[in-house]
Design a protein around this nucleic acid. Structure first.
Lengths: 193, 193, 193, 193
DNA sequence: TATGAATGAGCCTTCATTCAT
DNA sequence: GATGAATGAAGGCTCATTCAT
């Protein structure tokens, strides 16, 4: 990579970092582009060299971060052995929960802006995400379930996990995450059996 | 009600209506207070006589609308006879789904801004909502489940219903609502059994 | 006084009191008429029955308060015996200083809006103020000074007293009032001798 | 200075000039920022590039103008020879009076907003103002007076000068400045002797 | 007389975007 | 490529004043 290339990458990533920090701490509406460039230490025009507008950089951040959680979760899951699919899935979910609990600000940012569409995009752009599908397919391999239905169940479980995390970790509603976890796990077990 | 009193109610409700229409069609961020008052046909100062700012009226609209869906759903459910709790609950959920499918704009508005906190508030302010709890309590009356856990299951089912509706009705992801319904129903059945 | 008359006086004086409290605590610019009527507990239209606008009530308050300080000072001075004019004048000034020190908020309000014009008006409208002139005339009765010059010296001494009070009591500049008093007294003595 | 730099200075100073003209002719309360930028021929945003708000530019104008009067007065005083301190001080005061008489609008603006605090700031930021102190120190060098007391006397004389100018030049009260001058001079002479 | 709901002019302030350097 | 000064549209909000009751 040439010196110029390196410099460009550096500017871009300092913009990402600054935007992420501001979005999570001040909120999206209250973050102006001028805040971002000030924090990133670059000129105002520079922002527009890399991003179309605030929502452009926001979308990219959300995609990055969401993908990262999921790929970390599947990577750790794959590195272990489990006695069955249920155990494996619960480990996977628990990994996500613990990750989000440790990074509440990120949870707040991605959940309210996350959609299955984003997930689909991640699936196409990042190979690691395929593994999540594969895990489900293996889990259901002896079942007569159609592949499309497997996707729907995956969807339901991820939505449920996300909802519960957001509500319990951020709002403490209807109870904190430690109280919700057993219910969530029991629910997931029922869903896949 | 005096003439003045009637006039006030009229202004307030024309503001509500105008704001709701604009929020659902143009979006929250792109709706200015001046848009609202223009549509409502009142002076700018009048807006601030009734609401603190845009988010004040938004919150009130969301609370109203959400409460309305739920209370309509429970009202219709109570008007019927069912052979068991499962049948009753599925009817209740189906009512919500069909309601939201018919009013996509409202779904879009309330879902992304709805939280269990709003629901709790509705529970305290509107008596109809109590009936939802009562339905669940009756459904679980023979079960050894703790009341707190019943609340959590109710929460999970409502979140799931909301998530599935939003994603399938608005985004058609991962499939349209007609395809998702059977999966959702099967899931709910599993959860309560 | 009829009941109606009494009620009117009461409303007017509650407006005065409310306005004074707000002007002194929040400042003139930051006090709105709606603040005043809220505090006074009267309707908005009522304000306009008694005053033309904010500056109308302000002017009247300043005139009242300034006159009150001066007439109290002269009343107390007249109630005592002094060995000469110098002693009398210093007592008079000291009375004003101590009064203003005890009511900093009032000092702040009247000083920045006081002028010799206000004083002149007070002279015409309130008889007590005449006494201040008389004190000076007596003090200078053996001197060949023209009456007009006496007025100018009175003006100079009052301005000086006001300036020193404002600066030292409110701003602590260039020193606090206890440090400034001896200098002020020495100066006044020099001026009249 | 680069072209950009020069352009910036130009914008800033056109804002200063426009604001000063409006403050002095229309008054502070009746001058809106939009008036200022219209007169200055710059965009609204430009104002906020240079000043925080109306009072920011006002404070800076007052400081500039007050400093200017005083530094002009001391500069002219230093350029002459006097037989003693009294003559020197009266010349200095007279210079200020004549300056203010020629620029009534400025007098109106600065006097009601001037305070010893502003003067202190000017003393720290502008070297010329030190000379005023030095003149007083030289004047009192044979006297046993403490330095702090010298400052207080300087304060008193300046306040008195300001008060008299404002009242007589602007309000013609209690007499016009030509009538007040002899009294003021006599008073100052008494104060320093 | 007293009220207070309604108004809308007009203020301040922000901010995305441009473009000359 | 990088900059940041300049912009002005747009928005939020306040408040003196009116007038029907």
């Amino acid at each position: 990579m040439s010196k110029v290339e390196k410099n460009k990458k550096q500017k871009e990533s300092s913009l990402y970092k600054a935007a992420y920090d501001l979005f999570t701490t001040k909120g999206i509406n209250d973050t102006a582009i001028s805040d971002i460039i000030k924090k990133a230490g670059v000129g105002k025009g520079t922002f527009y060299l890399y991003f179309k507008n605030k929502y452009d950089i926001l979308d990219k951040i959300i995609l990055n971060k969401s993908t990262h959680v999921l790929s970390e979760a599947i990577r750790h899951t794959k590195a272990r052995e489990f006695k069955d699919f249920e155990e494996e899935l619960l480990y996977f979910i628990d990994y996500i929960i613990e990750y989000l609990r440790k990074d509440k600000l990120m949870l707040k940012l991605i959940y309210k802006n996350l959609s299955w569409g984003v997930f689909k995009k991640a699936y196409n752009d990042y190979e690691e995400i395929h593994e999540i599908y594969l895990m489900f397919e293996r889990g259901y391999e002896k079942s007569p379930l159609h592949n499309d239905d497997i996707e729907k169940i995956l969807f339901i479980i991820l939505e449920l996990t996300g909802s519960v995390c957001y509500s319990s970790i951020i709002l403490n509603e209807p109870a904190d995450i430690d109280e919700m976890k057993p219910i969530l796990f029991k629910t997931v077990k029922k869903i896949i059996n």
